[in-house]
Design a protein around this nucleic acid. Structure first.
Lengths: 251, 251
DNA sequence: TAGTGGTCTAGACCACCTT
DNA sequence: AGGTGGTCTAGACCACTAC
């Protein structure tokens, strides 16, 4: 019945200023540091919820939240009726974020410019139609835009758009707003599939990017769907010497 | 006081066989489908916890868990004292998993083979030492291993190892167990940093991979740390024609 | 039978924001 | 002042596993 503040241990009085430091975070940090520090090895069993409840003097729900979040983060495996264990980290599963190029450049406090080289309506061939789940010969929008960071071309964006999802696509000013940004406004994202690969640039791409033909590119292909319907398929070509993806993983 | 089963709404009797379908999941699914279906647009305000508590006839903690998990998944933004909102999905933040090559091949039900081409102790030059946080001239282990999937070379793994973290590295049989797997056992992972880029193969790499010099490669560089100490730095080179990274994102 | 995690309740206090 | 989310409690019932 009694809540934390009326019980014998006023936790908020124990923690310093700047934030009471939630109890579940204390438990979580304790376990995370123990795992990272090797106190519990991969596969080893962690203290039970009951153990932690007693050790930290908190309720079981609080301990449960700490363990559940560690499980969601992939650090802990849980088996009903058995216990909680340190996850085998062999399947690391680092995560990498692929962001809208405008936001990515803005985050570096650099200047973003976009130039529109193609903005047209065309009849999809078989391959293009398949990407968007349309029949061959269907009308689709097509744009080719080069993005520059502080004046240097870093991405050539070749995009097909399903007109049914974005009928006003051809009327936008893509020098001011990226297609990604516009499309996410008119068609709420529900699913995306993508690949990342290395490739040599095509003749047009090399010319637009101002790069030598012999230099490789990092190519991201992505198909985005909204409400189960393919909205757009894009091929993002980046000169290898000017662009790389990076990320980090923290246990 | 009364729990679900003794109250007026025995939820477990309402749901079919195969699992009671937790209440928090019903709330979560309802919101997720509404967001994906466009019922609530990005930036729009969602029903409050109190609203959902009443609408679903569950406790606030249950509704809170649903909203909290949607927030953790990036679908919902929450502002204390204001409300919950559909997240602006502009920063897509897709996640990409980078896995141990053995598990990756095994997951495709293919055969994995590894051949060890270099396994040596050497004195680190300035660049190598910097990667591992050691002084120039320090002793490090060095291995070059080619991984094959069903007989086709898909990865050349060039690795430096900090001897202080894995003193028995030179005694392992890396035709049977991958260095990644071994290192994660002896030094629990706590942090990894990596980059992904396109590049042309070096002469040695092209020869080991059996690929033409003119074909580009997808290169993953990764530095892994344990307890704040760099354990290993690796360069993974993949022929562009035989390897790509793929992933998906679901709202 | 005893221990484990999975879920849920009906309250509570708090910080925060809007009015 | 009133609504919002952030956290926490002291129980509860259940499914599952191990002994």
């Amino acid at each position: 019945m009694a809540t934390k503040s009326s019980s014998s241990l006023p936790a908020s009085a124990l923690s310093g200023a700047g934030g009471p430091a939630p109890q579940y975070l204390k438990v979580k940090t304790h376990l995370r540091e123990g795992i990272a520090g090797g106190r519990w090895r991969p596969g080893e069993r962690l203290p039970s919820e009951a153990d932690l409840t007693e050790a930290f003097g908190v309720s079981r729900m609080t301990v449960n939240r700490a363990l559940r979040e560690l499980h969601q983060e992939g650090l802990v495996e849980r088996v009903q009726g058995v216990g909680s264990f340190v996850a085998q980290l062999h399947r690391i599963a680092s995560t990498l974020t692929v962001r809208d190029v405008h936001e990515e450049i803005a985050a570096r406090n650099h200047r973003h410019e976009a130039s529109v080289h193609v903005l047209e309506t065309l009849r999809a061939d078989a391959g293009q139609a398949a990407l968007l789940g349309l029949r061959a010969g269907a009308t689709v929008f097509h744009s080719v835009i080069v993005h520059r960071e502080n004046g240097i071309a870093i991405q050539c964006e070749d995009r097909l758009v399903n007109p049914a999802c974005a009928p006003d696509y051809m009327d936008q000013d893509f020098a001011r707003i990226t297609p990604t940004h516009y499309l996410l406004e008119v068609a709420p994202l529900s699913e995306a599939r993508y690949t990342i690969e290395a490739a040599m640039p095509g003749a047009l791409e090399a010319r637009l990017l101002g790069m030598p033909r012999g230099e490789p590119c990092l190519v991201v292909k992505r198909v985005t769907s909204s409400q189960g319907r393919a909205v757009t398929a894009v091929r993002l070509v980046h000169p290898a010497s000017r662009y790389l993806l990076e990320g980090s993983f923290q246990a």
